[in-house]
Amino acid sequence: MALPPNSETERGVYLRNVFYNTHPTEVFSTWPKLIVEDYAVVGRLINLYSFIEINLRRLVESWTDADLLPKGRIKDLPLGRVEELAQTVLLWPEANLFALKKMAELRSLRNLVAHFGMMRFPDDDAFLFIAKSEADYKKQTGEQSVEDVMLIAVLDGPALPRLVQELEGMAQWLATVTAQILKQKADAEADVSKS
């Protein structure tokens, strides 16, 4: 699981310090939980990535069938490899390649909302993501954690719906281009079978 890269901003440092200066008992017992609108945005994000993955795999499978890729079990490829293939098999226009790369980059946000506990800061429009996993800690830091250390990430509240809205446009483009490529493939196969 990859997490979003840590970008040191004044706001991020401030939010992390709010967490670090609060006793864990208080964080877990009194900090606000998510509201209905938060769950809706998280659900949209997770669902978007489910369809993004489906369409990326459909593309790569169609390219395998068209002998643009070696035959093999595409369904067994890790998603990161499928994303790489989707970006490199065709010579995409710059805007399309940007969208494919952005979807791959933002998948770490999907991993964050799906694998971390999520709550709101008490006096800020911001989210705290928190996990306690030695494997994830080692993956992120390269070190072993000390007792009671948790992985955290913070995100400004308005950033999440804005990113989801941006992803919706890219996911729609991907669905459309996937349908077009699969239709071209089906039309070509129909033409060959008529010959």
Rank of each mutant, 00 (worst) to 15 (best):
A2E: 09
P4M: 00
N6G: 05
S7G: 10
E8G: 03
E8S: 01
Y14V: 04
R16G: 12
N17R: 11
N21Q: 04
T22F: 06
V27K: 01
S29T: 01
W31M: 11
K33I: 09
I35N: 04
I35H: 09
V36R: 12
E37H: 15
D38A: 08
A40E: 15
A40H: 14
G43R: 03
G43A: 13
R44E: 15
N47F: 12
N47R: 15
S50H: 03
I52G: 08
I52T: 08
I54G: 14
I54N: 10
N55Q: 10
L56P: 06
R57G: 01
S62C: 14
W63M: 02
A66G: 04
D67F: 07
L68N: 05
L69D: 09
K71H: 09
G72L: 15
D76M: 10
L77H: 12
G80Q: 04
G80N: 15
R81Y: 14
E83N: 14
A86I: 05
Q87L: 14
Q87T: 12
T88N: 12
T88K: 10
L90G: 08
L90V: 15
L91H: 07
L91D: 08
E94N: 05
L97T: 13
F98E: 06
F98T: 12
K102F: 09
M103Y: 14
A104D: 10
A104C: 11
L106H: 10
R107F: 06
R110Q: 11
L112G: 08
A114T: 05
A114V: 06
H115A: 04
H115I: 00
F116R: 00
G117N: 02
M118N: 01
M118F: 03
R120L: 13
R120N: 03
D124P: 15
D125N: 15
A126C: 05
F127N: 00
L128V: 02
F129L: 04
F129W: 00
A131Q: 01
A131H: 00
A131Y: 00
S133C: 00
S133F: 00
A135S: 04
Y137R: 02
K138F: 00
K138E: 05
K139V: 05
G142E: 06
G142Q: 02
E143R: 14
E143L: 13
Q144V: 11
S145W: 02
V146T: 13
V149N: 05
V149L: 14
M150F: 10
L155G: 03
D156P: 02
G157Q: 08
P158T: 09
A159R: 07
L163P: 07
V164L: 03
Q165P: 13
E166D: 12
E166R: 08
L167V: 14
E168P: 13
E168L: 04
G169D: 03
A171P: 08
A171G: 11
V177G: 09
T178N: 12
T178P: 01
A179I: 02
L182N: 01
A186Q: 07
A188C: 02
V192I: 10
S193R: 13
S193P: 02
K194H: 05
S195V: 10
